[in-house]
C-alpha cells in the first residue's frame, strides 16, 4: 500500500472518480493549469483536459451557482473554494438553492454537487486563510458536511461525497495536507457519510472531535496512556447531520466527555453534540460535559503568539483531558 499525504488522498480520490464517471468535473479558482494553490488538483488538467478541469473567475457565487446548475442537469461537479473563508459569497447559492431544491421540487430535482474547501489555522494565514466555517452550514437540512481527519478517510469519504446525490460540503484541514501521511489503498473503496469512527478505544474519558484536532487528541492520549489514563476517541467525520448513535455510545462508555474543536466555542458543532449527550445520557454522566475550543474572538489572529493562543494543540488537549480524568 502506498503512503499518501492528506492532500495526495484528495487528488487520488478526484482522479479515480473522474476516471470512473465522465460526468465528474472540477471547477474553481486556479484548479486547472496551476493545479490548485495547494496542489490538490495537480496533474488533472493535463490528464482530463480543460473541459473537465475548469479555471473560473474569482467569483465564489458563480463557482457554486454554475456547479449547482450543472448538477441539476445530471453532472457531478466538484467545486473548489480556494479557502473556506471565501465561501461566504456563495452561501446564498448553497443554502437557498443546493440545500433546498430536492424539498422545494418535491423530489423532481436534486443537486449532486461536492464543494471542497480548505479550512483551519495554524499555518500563519490570519483572517482570510484560517477560519472554520462549518457551523454556518450545520443547521441546514438538505446539506451534508464532511470533515475527515486522515488520508484514508479523505479518499473514502471524498468518493462518497462525489457519488452522493445531494450537496456535500467537504472541508479539508489545510495544515493536515502535508502533515498527515499514512498508508492508503490503491483500490477503490468508500466510507459512508454520516458515520463517526472510533479512532482509539479507552475507558477513562471520551473525547469527541473532528478534523485536525483528532490528531492532537491522539497525541495527547498517547502521552496520558503512560500515566495510566485511558482515552476513548471518537472522530465525528461527518459533522452534519451528526451520528447520534455513535455519540451516545461513546459518551455512555466513560461518562466523562470532552469535546474538541478549533472553531469558536459558542454555537459550534460541539454545542449540538453536547445537547445530544445531555438529552440522552444524563444517568451515565460522571462529569459535566467539557468543551475545548477556540476563543470567541472574530477570527484567527496573525501574530504567531496570538495564533498559538487561538489554536488547539496537543498540550491544550492533554491538559483538558487530564483535568477531566482527574475529576
Amino acid at each position: 500500500m502506498p503512503v499518501m499525504s492528506y492532500i495526495q488522498a484528495v487528488t487520488a480520490a478526484l482522479r479515480e472518480e473522474m476516471l470512473r464517471d465522465e460526468k465528474v468535473f472540477i471547477l474553481g479558482e486556479d484548479v486547472g493549469k496551476k493545479g490548485g494553490v495547494f496542489r490538490a488538483t495537480e496533474g488533472l488538467y493535463d490528464e482530463f483536459g480543460e473541459y473537465r478541469v475548469l479555471d473560473t473567475p474569482l467569483s465564489e457565487s458563480a463557482i457554486a451557482g454554475v456547479g449547482i446548475g450543472a448538477a441539476m442537469y445530471g453532472m457531478r461537479p466538484v467545486a473548489e473554494m480556494q479557502f473556506a473563508d471565501f465561501i461566504l459569497p456563495a452561501v446564498n447559492q448553497i443554502l437557498s438553492e443546493a440545500a433546498r431544491i430536492r424539498y422545494r421540487s418535491n423530489n423532481d430535482w436534486n443537486v449532486p454537487i461536492t464543494i471542497r474547501a480548505p479550512y483551519g489555522g495554524g499555518v500563519h494565514g490570519a483572517l482570510y486563510h484560517s477560519q472554520s466555517v462549518e457551523a454556518i452550514f450545520a443547521n441546514q437540512p438538505g446539506l451534508k458536511i464532511v470533515m475527515p481527519s486522515t488520508p484514508y478517510d479523505v479518499k473514502g469519504l471524498l468518493k462518497s461525497a462525489i457519488r452522493d446525490n445531494d450537496p456535500v460540503l467537504f472541508f479539508e484541514h489545510k495544515r493536515a495536507y502535508r502533515l498527515l501521511k499514512e498508508e492508503v489503498p490503491d483500490e477503490d473503496y468508500t466510507i459512508p457519510i454520516g458515520k463517526a469512527d472510533v479512532k482509539r478505544e479507552g475507558s477513562d474519558i471520551t473525547v469527541i472531535t473532528y478534523g485536525l484536532c483528532v490528531h492532537f487528541a491522539l497525541q495527547a492520549a498517547e502521552k496520558l496512556a503512560q500515566e495510566g489514563i485511558d482515552v476513548h476517541i471518537l472522530d465525528l467525520r461527518t459533522v452534519y447531520p451528526l451520528d447520534q448513535e455513535a455519540i451516545i455510545e461513546a459518551a455512555r462508555k466513560t461518562g466523562k466527555v470532552l469535546l474538541i474543536t478549533e472553531d469558536n466555542k459558542e454555537g459550534s458543532i460541539l454545542s449540538e453534540v453536547a445537547a445530544i449527550i445531555a438529552e440522552h445520557c444524563l444517568f451515565d454522566l460522571d462529569a459535566p460535559i467539557q468543551r475545548l475550543a477556540g476563543p470567541d474572538v472574530p477570527a484567527m489572529p496573525y501574530a504567531p503568539t496570538m495564533e498559538k493562543f487561538f489554536m488547539i494543540n496537543p498540550d491544550k488537549c492533554e491538559k483538558a483531558m487530564r483535568d477531566l480524568a482527574e475529576f
Binding site: 495547494f38 480548505p118 499555518v123 500563519h124 494565514g125 486563510h129 489545510k174 495544515r175 495536507y177 502535508r178 502533515l179
Partner: peptide
C-alpha cells in the same frame, strides 16, 4: 521555520 502556509516540513 514555517516557510509558508500549509508547509509542515
Amino acid at each position: 521555520p514555517q516557510l509558508g502556509e500549509s508547509v509542515t516540513e
